[in-house]
Nucleic acid binder design. Structure first.
Length: 711
DNA sequence: CGGGAAAAGCTTTTT
DNA sequence: GCTTTTCCCG
């Protein structure tokens, strides 16, 4: 194995002896490479069989990339290696041990949307007020409890509201059990509990996985940590890779403290720091280091590069969000003439709402762009409808699927009828499907409802019978047409209906593609496809090859890099976000988010802010982000908005923000003065309110002025 | 049942 | 303010 393409720290991590390793990998320090080389090293030099390796990531994309790269490096398939997401691996485990876990063999996975709907149903069934117990909060509560590995009876909160929430949790679990479905968190929790209580299984897996590797460790939550610890046992080797400075998911339960906990729980853990950065210029790294040094309690790390200093970071003070968008678009147009392609440029923002104005500006200039995030393919309503039909074919107990399709497309089964079925299900403790059958046998319904319901039952049964032995994609196609979904969405007018039809057609392709891949043993192709749909978001790679500007939130930019990065909306209240203002912990997470954003940039970084921005329907003046101030001035070239735009500034309202004069002027910078017009900065003296700037104006020659009069 | 009006969100997201 | 969801009535 050739290791001389690795730097000393990377080599140390790759060839480290078996035992516990904590790799603190800074942004752009080649962490994925280290993980891949490490796995290859374990197999080739430590003679560990792939069968004995467990590698965990957070996204399917990372897992797939890792497997592919290890395979191409070793030139052999490593099929027996367990590599995947926490959820994917837990799923694999539970499929193998469904009996021990007390699950039906045909169990299906509930995504967050299904989970929300089911919780709402449970709340209604308990006759609780939706206002007092919002399903969203109940969902949050339930998931938080599960992430702390607490079952309903183990929750210790005892005031009335909490008690009710516990009852909802309990009822929700029962509903899941009845329907034979399991939510995302339960995949992990059930795996953990089973491994904990079943000595034979635990011993078996602890003997099997001699080497564990974990990527993005800073994003693990309490449950994931316990899960790992259980798989690792006392004797196995575990390598965790992470960066405390890039922990940006505290709000969804990630615990940075897990890194410190690791050193305590796995004694003798060797710490390796990867600090050499292969991505950004010296200037960008200096800015990133200065910024993150404001955070407390860091494990400590300082990125450096052999690369050149590069260009200064540009900050732009826009008048408003439109001006900001036009500035960005203008720069993109300039850069496009030079060495950069559109795909080399990314616009990053704190919240999704910011993309609209930027998109409008891009459109106006005909610049192709792509917005990341938003609804994923398998989350689209029409796809979920189709999947619900497939789910009920695979498992008649599946209540969430039943609820979804009982009247979609509409077939004359109203709310009243469905409520009667729910009532029966509740009293007899039956799944909805069987409750419906019971009521039909009892001749409970009016003639009209009776025939509609009988038709529904016949439709599903017929779908099931007629597709037996069919290829998966044929089965999907059959269901799409016979369910009436195609007809239903064909009637929907406008572009929306058309897109939906295209999406449904794509589902047939997806099924076709899937059935050609290997289906795990003992699982029907349909069940395997449904699990795949729940666990993988299916990225549309075709679009990635287009030459277009990339738009995304800072969160979704983690792990990516771009030659040119625009960080838009660098204002107090927006970034850092106002909801994080009063919580020092949250504020530090905002700063880490900014650190992530800055370190995405390879060559050029623009940080823009608007002095006046429309937020939640109100116009507001905001100060530039504190993060801008935390970057040393000598690294930044500040540009202010054009005079032309400033004229439309409303005179009536008093700006809460006065342009600040703190060290933001640079020699050679073009400035504007209300009386003297345009000029160029010759010299700067003093700072703060005392700062004086020497400016040469075209009209009146050279003047020394108080900085705050200049824009 | 479907369309339009009223009301409710409104940070960040993967599985 | 804008967009999405819910509600109500013909």
């Amino acid at each position: 194995m050739i290791l001389n393409s690795l730097n000393p720290a990377q080599q140390e991590a790759v060839v480290a002896p078996l035992g516990h390793q904590l790799v603190l990998a800074g942004a752009g320090s080649g962490k994925t490479r280290v993980l891949i080389y490490r796995i290859a090293w374990l197999i080739e030099h430590e003679h560990i069989s792939p069968f004995n390796i467990l590698a965990v990531t957070f996204t399917n994309k990372a897992a797939n990339e890792m497997r592919t790269r290890v395979e191409s490096m070793l030139n052999v398939p490593v099929k027996s290696m367990w590599i995947g997401t926490f959820h994917g691996l837990s799923h694999r485990f539970l499929r193998a041990h469904w009996q021990e876990a007390g699950l039906p063999q045909a169990f299906q996975i509930l995504d967050s949307d299904d989970q929300f709907r089911l919780i709402r149903r449970v709340i209604h069934a308990m006759n609780l007020d939706e206002e007092r117990f919002p399903p969203k909060e109940a969902q949050w509560f339930i998931n938080a409890q599960k992430e702390e590995a607490r079952e309903p009876h183990q929750v210790e909160l005892r005031d009335f509201t909490a008690q009710t929430l516990i009852q909802i949790y309990q009822a929700y679990q029962e509903a899941c059990q009845r329907a034979g479905v399991i939510d995302f968190t339960d995949l992990l929790l059930k795996t953990y509990k089973l491994l904990l209580s079943n000595d034979t299984l635990r011993q078996h897996y602890q003997e099997r996985f001699r080497c564990l590797l974990v990527d993005e460790f800073q994003d693990t939550n309490t449950l994931q940590y316990s899960w790992l610890k259980l798989f690792a046992g006392e004797n196995n080797s575990i390598m965790i890779v992470g960066d405390d400075d890039q922990s940006i998911y505290g709000w969804r339960g990630a615990r940075i403290e897990n890194i410190q906990r690791f050193s305590k729980d796995f004694p003798g853990a060797n710490i390796i720091r990867l600090e050499q950065n292969y991505r950004s210029t010296g200037t960008i790294l200096k800015a990133a280091n200065a910024l993150i040094s404001q955070n407390s309690g860091r494990l400590g790390k300082n990125l450096w590069t052999e690369d050149q200093e590069g260009e200064l970071i540009t900050s732009y003070a826009a008048f408003n969000e439109t001006d900001e968008a036009f500035f960005i678009v203008n720069r993109i147009r300039d850069l496009r003439q030079g060495e950069f392609a559109l795909r080399d440029m990314a616009i990053l923002y704190r919240s999704n709402a910011q993309s609209r104005v930027i998109e409008e500006a891009l459109m106006q200039f005909g610049i192709p762009y792509r917005v990341y995030g938003g609804l994923r393919y398998f989350d689209r309503a029409e796809i979920k409808d189709a999947l619900a039909y497939l789910r009920i074919i695979a498992n008649r107990h599946d209540d969430p699927a039943f609820e979804r399709i009982i009247n979609t497309p509409t077939r004359g089964i109203g709310d009243k009828t469905v409520n009667a079925i729910r009532e029966q299900a509740k009293t007899a403790n039956q799944p909805l499907w069987y409750a419906l059958i019971t009521l039909l046998e009892k001749k409970f319904f009016s003639a009209r409802a009776d025939s509609a319901l009988a038709n529904f039952v016949n439709l599903i049964n017929a779908m099931d019978e007629k597709t037996v032995g069919m290829d998966l994609h044929k089965q999907v196609e059959y269901v799409l047409y016979s369910s009436g979904l195609i007809e239903h969405y064909r009637k929907e007018k406008g572009e929306k209906g058309l897109t939906r039809l295209e999406n449904l057609e794509e589902l047939v392709n997806a099924a076709h593609q899937f059935s050609q891949e290997a289906v795990p043993d003992e699982m029907s192709p349909l069940a395997a496809f449904l699990a795949y749909a729940a666990l993988e978001s299916k990225d549309d790679q075709a679009e990635a090859y287009d030459d277009s500007v990339q738009l995304m939130t800072l969160h979704s930019a983690k792990g990516l890099e771009f030659p040119v990065v625009f960080l838009a909306g660098c204002e107090e209240e927006l970034f850092p976000h106002y909801l994080s203002m009063n919580d020092p912990k949250a504020m530090e997470e905002e700063r880490r988010l900014c650190y992530v954003g800055v370190t995405r940039a390879m060559k050029k970084l623009f940080m823009t802010y608007a002095e006046l921005r429309r937020m939640h329907g109100k116009e507001a003046y905001h100060r530039p982000s504190r993060f801008l101030r935390e970057i040393p001035v000598e690294l930044v070239d500040e540009v202010r908005f054009r005079t032309k735009v400033s004229r439309v500034q409303p005179v009536a309202s008093t700006p809460a923000y006065k342009p600040q004069a703190q060290g933001r002027f640079r020699i050679g910078q073009d400035v504007h003065h209300r009386v003297f017009g345009e000029g160029t900065v010759l010299d700067v003296e003093g700072d703060g309110d005392e700062m004086k700037v020497k400016v040469r104006f075209g009209s009146v020659g050279t003047k020394v002025l108080i900085a705050s009069y200049l824009t």
